Computed example of a mutant assay.
Amino acid sequence: MSRIVLVHGIGQQVSGGRTLVESWYPCLADGLALHGVQVDRAEVDMTFYGDLFRPAGHRGVGLPDLDASDVTDDVEREILLAWWQQAARQEEGVAGPADRTRLRTPYIVQRALNALSHSSFFAGLSERLMISSVRQVRRYLTEPAVRREVQSRMTAVVTDRTEVVVAHSLGSVVAYEWLCAHAERRDITLVTLGSPLAVRNIVFDRLQPAPVRGRAQWPGGVGTWWNIADRGDVVALVKALGPAFGDRIEDCLVHNGAKAHDVRPYLTARETGEAVVTGLGGGGDGSRGGSGRR
């Protein structure tokens, strides 16, 4: 009967709900400790759906041998190009789509993968991991059966005692859509971390319920919504959700160091701690002072 429900993002297909919550909980506890608040481990649970994206067994070792030729879907291609453009804007060492002098391959997807492999954000990730990541986003957004099953995982975890939902990356899309569909869950505080919710033409326009005239529906059961993003987070292409989802959102910027999209520094941030404390009925310590807000 958890007061706090966590929702993970992409890349967790070989993990598990218990494993993840044990990994996330100490970081969450550190963020809360900055405000003098403790929450028992038993009051925190995880909505886990990574197994839905785990490939079936095959003759090779590791992930299926994906390469640029396997990226034929328009959504997957658009996600890769959006990440590439953002990485190029943020890092001088990453060649952008208009720079053909350093990346000579004629295929736009291969050029995107090559460029991203040289970015600090995707350093160490193989092409197959990057492709697998974009494929998970595409499958959730375009395959109704996958979406329904992920949403059912959320239903199984959120209870009448749940006060705060903390959702990272693709998990913020999962949580948003679930909360829109379950307006009977009153006074929930939603905390989104590194969210791609406002990325138009990829995520925003495929949300359920669909936005109307450029504005998305407010999730009816949510009383307070904090959105927290690192300026260097390539996945959270649009840092402020307020313009698209409503002025009631508290949009905050944080600094996560070299791992801009990693959930762990997001959870240990003072701003995240304040958001969760507020959702649990506390007032926070007021020390943010607006310096991290946009």
Rank of each mutant, 00 (worst) to 15 (best):
L170N: 06
I188Y: 08
K259D: 13
L63H: 08
S172T: 06
R294A: 00
V277F: 11
R100G: 08
S120W: 12
D30G: 08
A33H: 04
L81F: 12
E78R: 15
G279E: 04
S2Q: 10
G96L: 10
F122K: 02
L241I: 08
H118W: 09
K239F: 12
T189V: 01
R128L: 10
V166M: 10
A198W: 09
V166C: 04
I228T: 09
Q217M: 09
L190E: 01
R200K: 13
A29W: 01
E127F: 01
T192G: 05
K259N: 12
V44T: 04
R148L: 08
L267V: 00
P211M: 03
G171A: 05
N256W: 03
V14F: 14
Y107I: 08
L20T: 04
E78H: 14
I228N: 12
Y266K: 07
D205Q: 04
R200V: 05
Y266W: 10
V5T: 13
V37F: 11
T101G: 02
A87G: 07
W218S: 06
G31S: 04
T268P: 02
G50L: 10
L207S: 00
W84E: 06
T278P: 00
D233P: 05
F53P: 01
R102I: 05
T72S: 12
L66F: 15
Y176W: 11
C252Y: 14
D40K: 09
G289K: 11
T142L: 10
R128T: 09
R206C: 04
F48Y: 15
V21C: 08
R59G: 15
L66Q: 10
Q151D: 05
V277N: 11
Y140K: 03
Q13L: 14
V21F: 08
Q217L: 12
G242M: 14
S132T: 13
S2D: 10
